[in-house]
Design a protein around this nucleic acid. Structure first.
Lengths: 210, 210
DNA sequence: TGTACATCAGTGAACGCGCGTTCACTGATGTAC
DNA sequence: TGTACATCAGTGAACGCGCGTTCACTGATGTAC
């Protein structure tokens, strides 16, 4: 990945991708710190160390950048989940399973703020809503089988369609992250997730393992 | 309330309050439709039918307006809850109680979008976070006793501090509203809330009622 | 491996507009008699 | 109840800046021989 052969039209591509990446990184910073309302093309470029011309050579508009940022971050999250769950979810009881799920889903203030704004946009703009829904679905598709397997190992199975189960968990987790980041005390923390998980799964009598 | 006597310094006050109210209403519309990033002092004034001078006669800055908007909307929500819960929560089982709670908490796309943006701000700005936390606490304080009473009536009581119980419920509800407004299918809807409520409460053997 | 050449990516200056902010002014609103 | 007066709220014009957007140009990057 690092020293891959240039490829046919890598001439153009390479530098471009680097600038795009730098612009996206800068955008994440600026958006995370200032919010969309205070983020100008100018401020992103300054942060990235480019002139505005470079921006317009890569993106059509600020909205374009934001969409690209969301896509890239969403993909990164899915990758992260995929990677970390490669070995499956360990744990011998519900709480442990929940604990491991929580470790995989990061709690990042900056990104959460950006995501909240993106959600707000999705509530207004069907296009943004579709993008968001797609990402969420992909994330669930990634989590579902691993979660089901982990549950199976501790003698439980979903009491509703697996995708619904994951959806409920993610929903609860989302609210939880917000609550945590706002500093509403440690409170009921993971217990909400454990309880949710318990409510939407059921024990089953296992066939005798060989 | 409609034809109250003017009062000592109502001269000034009356017109002012009306303009303030109109500006706030316009701001809710504009913010809800366009988002903070696209909402200018200009656009709010235009919507409200005022010139910009009127704005600056009432607010120092856009942030000021937004803060006032949040405060006023939050207060309105608390009022609504207070009013509707005056008679207590009816219901003979958990699902019914949940159903009534859901009726009290409105699902308003526009306001939810504004709230999401406000949450994002709170994740960055301690001042905004404090305001948000205060409102949330007030809302919980309003809900808690009524909920506990309703639970008592069906033979249940919180298994955790009442405020925690409400917090978990509100958290779950928040995620649920988002999910619903994004159109993620009816799915597990209220069942998440019922399950949550069930998990964080316990039956108790009632003293024989006189 | 070196050199001439073509193309592409980012530069930086320039333009202009939207809009935040100010302020002298006017009309509205209430008070006093 | 009517009239003169004081004050306050909103008007609208003016100023200027930040920044979005464009574009001719230059230096970087790769290709061909």
């Amino acid at each position: 990945m690092t020293t891959a052969p240039p490829g046919p039209d890598a001439r153009t591509t390479r530098r471009r991708e680097q600038t795009r990446a730098r612009l996206l990184a800068a955008a994440l910073d600026v958006l995370g710190e200032q919010g969309l309302a205070r983020s100008s093309v100018e401020s992103v470029c300054e942060r990235a160390g480019f002139t505005r011309g470079a921006f317009y050579s890569n993106f059509a508009t600020m909205d374009d950048l934001v969409a690209a940022l969301y896509t890239s971050q969403a993909a990164a999250l899915v990758d992260r989940v995929t990677e970390r769950l490669g070995a499956g979810l360990p744990g011998t009881d519900l709480d442990q399973v929940v604990g491991h799920v929580l470790e995989v889903l990061p709690v990042d203030r900056q990104w959460h703020a950006v995501r909240a704004e993106f959600t707000a946009q999705a509530l207004r703009n069907p296009g943004a809503a579709a993008a968001l829904a797609e990402h969420r679905a992909r994330l669930r598709a990634e989590l579902a089988p691993v979660l089901v397997a982990a549950l199976h190992r501790i003698g439980r199975r979903p009491a509703v369609p697996a995708d619904d189960l994951v959806r409920v968990l993610v929903t609860a987790h989302e609210g939880l992250v917000t609550s945590t980041l706002l500093g509403e005390g440690p409170g009921v923390g993971t217990r909400l997730l454990s309880a949710t998980l318990a409510s939407f799964t059921e024990e089953f009598t296992e066939e005798v393992p060989s």
